[in-house]
């Protein structure tokens, strides 16, 4: 699939923002006044930037409000609703902390739960697609939520639990990569079933329907990036898991190291998310003899 920068920014930044909101929401002794202001400015900044980035992907962003109508059947519509509700609930909770110093624990927990469900809904936009076997798997929602929870833990300064989460996230990502590599061949969809000609013999694409490129090839048959996939996986893994783990868990805590660790985690997450799109094979590629 085409790794659109708008979608990488949308999923990564909104996940991180909602992850941070969730950690602030369940904090028994949350920050108040100015400290709370800066934490929530970061959380809302990340989530807001991500959600705004998603509208850049639209052909007609001026009609974006219509995307709230089909929540009964569409995960994209549900994600839109949940994101707005998560921002509203956490916004009220944050406003009470920032302006009055009041901690309404129940509201915080509610906000954290909705933030979590929002990230789950984001992941299901991709996880629901049977046409992309690598995504159509339980590892997709697990990974999106794990990235959000881990990134949120690091940003909110939960160093000890963050270290454990980094290990879990790293293991989950390695497992998802290995499993993802077998998903297309395991899906049962091949050139033979796509064309129905497999009963006659071996099918080979002889000539495509167009001499140039088209929307389908550009959007769904992105094969350029795959040759360096293994190297990019190692770079991503090093940046989002290994470097932050060393800086947080092995070395003594300092704010400078923590900042470097978080930036490294963000960079690694962006590369991992880029791979999430670039490596995913859409079954329509089979009509072109590609994967």
């Amino acid at each position: 699939m085409h790794p659109a920068p708008s979608l990488i920014a949308f999923t990564t930044l909104s996940g991180l923002g909602f992850g941070l909101m969730a950690w602030l929401g369940i904090d028994a002794t949350p920050p108040t006044f100015w400290v709370a202001f800066w934490f929530y400015a970061l959380a809302f900044g990340l989530a807001g930037a991500g959600l705004l980035a998603s509208t850049l992907h639209l052909g007609h962003p001026e009609r974006a409000l219509k995307a709230f109508t089909q929540w009964r059947s569409s995960w994209l519509s549900r994600e839109a609703w949940l994101a707005v509700i998560a921002l509203a609930v956490n916004g009220i909770y944050a406003a009470l902390l920032v302006f009055t110093g009041t901690h309404v624990a129940l509201l915080g927990w509610l906000g954290a739960a909705i933030a979590g469900v929002t990230v789950f809904a984001t992941s299901m936009i991709y996880g629901q697609l049977k046409t992309v076997p690598r995504w159509n798997d339980w590892t997709t929602p697990m990974l999106f939520v794990a990235f959000a929870v881990t990134g949120g833990a690091l940003l909110s300064g939960h160093v000890r639990v963050g270290g454990v989460l980094l290990l879990i996230l790293g293991a989950l990502q390695l497992f998802a990569w290995a499993r993802g590599d077998t998903r297309l061949s395991g899906s049962g969809t091949t050139m033979a079933t796509a064309t129905g000609l497999g009963t006659i013999g071996a099918v080979r694409a002889f000539e495509p329907p167009h001499t140039g490129s088209n929307y389908l090839l550009h959007e769904m048959v992105h094969v350029v990036a795959r040759k360096h996939a293994q190297k990019l996986r190692m770079i991503a893994f090093g940046l989002f898991a290994v470097v932050p783990w060393v800086l947080f868990v092995v070395l003594p805590f300092s704010h400078l190291l923590a900042a470097v660790a978080i930036l490294s985690h963000l960079a690694g997450t962006l590369i991992a998310r880029w791979l999430f799109f670039a490596e995913a094979e859409h079954v329509v590629g089979l009509y072109y003899g590609k994967r």
Binding site: M1, H57, L58, G59, H60, P61, R63, A64, K66, A67, L76, I125, Q128, L129, K130, T131, V132, T189, A194, N214, Y215, L216, E219, M220, H282, V283, V284, Y287
Partner: peptide, 26 residues
């Protein structure tokens, strides 16, 4: 007139039957 041009339907189609119009963005 209701299409926001998000492209998700084209992703959901296994047959490549939908194409985003390069001019109208629908």
């Amino acid at each position: 007139t209701d299409c926001i041009g998000c492209g998700l339907c084209a992703w959901a189609c296994p047959y490549g039957a939908r194409e985003m119009d390069a001019g109208e963005k629908v």
